[in-house]
């Protein structure tokens, strides 16, 4: 969310700045702490407050950020550390991202025609 501040007049600039910071803080929080469990707890605190802020101010999180957060336990999903990533072609071909802590799965279609709405040139208003 507004990690690159090209335009000068961004509404809620400070808030987006803050959300950006919290997202990075969650990343660093995962690396510290005695055990993985404790690190996860701190990470959850940051992600949760990030979500709350975005919800309060009715800001939409960028899909690239949203897809790395666990829906259920608010953990940052990093493949290999807090989540597993698998490719499945049982139904339609898709990628399964599974949280290691609460075993919630996210599925993303791997269609070649799929475009995120933020990357779609028709949606973006110049």
């Amino acid at each position: 969310m507004a990690a690159t501040t090209k335009q000068l007049n961004i509404p809620n600039k400070e808030i987006s700045h803050r959300i950006n910071f919290m997202y990075q803080a969650a990343h660093t929080a995962l690396t510290c702490g005695k055990s993985q469990e404790e690190a996860n707890q701190l990470c959850r605190i940051y992600v949760r407050s990030l979500r709350k802020i975005a919800k309060k101010l009715v800001l939409r999180l960028d899909p690239n950020i949203k897809r790395t957060l666990c829906k259920k336990c608010d953990l940052l999903l990093i493949p290999g550390i807090t989540s597993t990533i698998r490719h499945s072609s049982k139904r339609e071909k898709h990628v399964i991202l599974k949280c290691k802590d609460c075993a919630t799965t996210k599925r993303f279609l791997s269609r070649s025609t799929n475009v995120l709405f933020t990357e779609n040139p028709k949606v973006v208003v110049s």
Binding site: E38, Q41, I45
Partner: peptide, 29 residues
């Protein structure tokens, strides 16, 4: 899980990167 509290056994040195990140953020802000 939502209302979890932090464990009381942590190492201070582990949190220096977090502090450095915050300093960057604050001075930028």
């Amino acid at each position: 899980k939502l209302h979890c509290s932090l464990e009381l056994s942590q190492r201070f040195d582990d949190y220096m990167p977090l502090h450095n990140l915050w300093v960057d953020y604050m001075s930028c802000l």
